Amino acid sequence: MQTRITEQPSAYRHLETKSVQEITRYINTEDKKIALAIELVLPQINALIEIIVTKIKNGGRLFYVGAGSSGRLSVLDVIELPTTYGADPELFQVILAGGVDRLAEAREEMEDDKNEAWEQLLKKGISQKDLVVGISASGTTPFVLAALSKCRNEGIDTGCIVSNPGSLIAAQALYPVEVITGPEFITGSTRMKCGTAHKMIFDMISTTTMIRLGRIIDNQMVNVKLINEKITDRAVKMLMGLSNINDYDTAKELLFQHGSVQNALTSSNGKY
């Protein structure tokens, strides 16, 4: 039987009797363990990122299939990518139990649906060029497990991010990441350490992938969308710093002409 560490009792008892100071100290103590747990699985994360980059470079896409808190966190990561990196929104997508369009409703009952995820992948035109990554704290969520099993049967590469060892979902993943953060502060409340660990891994995956795809120069967001004054001002100053343009208005005009810092630098052909 699978070890369900995420369901084991909290190390902290009688929380209703504790002060605010005690509770926050205990939570902080548990949170300190998260980065160390991720460090232990960096090789698995690296392998997953390598295949994501390869798939996208070859015309494929990444699909997260998730449910619960971690599934919703994957949505939050993915929706940032077009703005931050000017990335095509088709490259990173999420199939969420209950639907991305109903994110705020937290429809946990949909986690048990064994058909919906695959049906949604079919609507997206899933193929062997793509990669499907299952997201599940428990490693047993039927919505996710059924999708990965079907993908394996169809010859579609799979990965996963789970928080229990030896899970059913990890067994269906060619690129499994099993980040073991231990029992939760509130017994079974995987929105806490598990959710934080998964969010940190999503950050690693998306950021590293975008860097490897050439969406970053030095450490700058050179493809950021010019959606407001703050970001536009940042982009103008970025362009000035990466070129020999010293005049703010000239840099701003060039930026708007080409739509991004990277395009402005490329189109200037060394002029600046």
Rank of each mutant, 00 (worst) to 15 (best):
R102W: 15
L121C: 15
A106N: 04
M110Q: 13
E105S: 00
K114N: 14
I56Y: 02
E109H: 11
I126C: 15
T54P: 03
D113C: 13
L81R: 05
N115W: 11
W118E: 09
D112H: 10
Q120N: 13
S74L: 00
I79R: 03
T54S: 13
K55I: 11
R107Y: 08
P82N: 11
E80K: 00
T54A: 08
G71H: 01
D113F: 06
N115C: 03
N115T: 10
A67L: 02
G71C: 07
G60M: 09
P43S: 02
E109W: 05
F92M: 04
V75F: 04
W118F: 11
L76N: 12
N58D: 03
L122Q: 14
L121M: 13
G86Y: 02
E80A: 07
K114P: 03
M110G: 05
E111I: 09
V78Y: 08
T84M: 03
I52K: 04
L81I: 00
L103A: 01
R61W: 00
N46I: 10
Q120A: 13
M110S: 04
W118Y: 15
V53R: 07
I45T: 04
R61L: 00
R61C: 02
E80R: 10
L91N: 09
I126G: 10
G68V: 11
R102M: 10
E105G: 11
L121T: 07
T54I: 14
R72C: 06
L122W: 04
D130L: 03
I95P: 06
L62N: 09
T54Y: 07
P82W: 15
K57C: 04
E116A: 15
N46T: 06
E116C: 12
G98L: 01
S127P: 03
E50G: 08
A97P: 14
G66L: 03
E105R: 13
D130T: 05
E108Q: 12
S74V: 05
Q128N: 03
D112T: 05
Q120C: 14
A117P: 01
R102D: 12
E111K: 05
I45H: 00
L62Y: 09
L96S: 02
K114F: 10
Q93V: 10
G125T: 05
D112R: 04
E108G: 12
I56W: 08
I95A: 09
E108Y: 06
E116G: 13
E111V: 06
E90F: 13
D112I: 10
E105F: 10
G71S: 13
E108N: 07
L73G: 01
A47C: 15
E111M: 01
S74T: 09
E119R: 07
V53I: 08
V53Y: 02
I52A: 06
P43E: 00
G66S: 06
D88K: 08
I49F: 03
G59Q: 00
E119L: 07
V100R: 14
